[in-house]
Amino acid sequence: MSHKAKEMISYAILVSISLIFIFPLIITVTNSFVTEMEIGLNYTTKLSLFDVLDQVSENFISMNIIPSQFSFGQYKEVLINQPSFIILLMNSIKITVPVVIGNLVISLLSAYAFTIWEWKYKEVLFFVYVIVMLMPLQAVLVPNYIIAEQLNIKESYLAIILPGIFSPFGTFLLRQGLKNMPMEYFEAAQIDGANKIQVLVYIVLPQMKSGIAALTMLTFIEYWNLVEQAIIFIKDYYKEPLSVFLSRIADGNIGVIFAASCIYMFLPFWFLIVGQKNLEKGIELSGIK
């Protein structure tokens, strides 16, 4: 009984904290079904003619959770009237997917190597991996540009994708996870005559399931939201990712901001839900074989 009560309390805490977290989401989703005109009225402190007649002197921004008039107008505007939106969405996918896959493979190999490597200075090298990750973005934009110039990839997605693939964060994350793995696992496998690739696939991979899930999730989100690099490397606006477009929307086109955000969020959500399950299942299967 007391066990159940405890569980109830922890649920209550979780639910109430979650509510704070999803409040912006709720606003975004419900407001995406509001007409553009209502948004114009709600999100402004300008007094309308009616306010002046009613002698209202102050006007607050109002956030309505329930729209006073349900409408698909914003979605229609975004999806049908602005075909460029779909192009930008595709661009986002073209940048994000290669980074997620490439980074996962590279990080997995490197993290594994760091775990089993018997080199005297591997901790120093690992430390360098972590330190370099600490560089703030502004500081590396110029060098990145110089390197992209030298490699002649300045005006292609490669200038964004390649640094993403080799980002040290994945190596760091997966290696920290592998530290929990008892060394005996590797030794036992080696005695059984498994080679290193077999150990990686059959022993390490299943163990790293949640680490890999976390890594893909976070990488996906990070590159889905990427803005700065895209601004510098991409010149043609039909090649820009959607994130760049959306980062500017708050200033002007607020009438469609909510619907645009909802569409933009849909893919990461789908990825988080469906993608994760399949990924985990895939890893489990590979472990059983």
């Binding site: 989401l25 956030m63 976070l218 994130s243 959306l246 708050a250 645009a260 955000s261 988080l272």
Partner: peptide, 20 residues
């Protein structure tokens, strides 16, 4: 998923939200 929402919402609309 719930706690990941803040990471997924595009910065443009979160900024709009906090400003408002």
């Amino acid at each position: 998923l719930l706690f990941l929402i803040p990471l997924v919402i595009p910065s443009g609309s979160t900024v709009f939200f906090w400003k408002m």
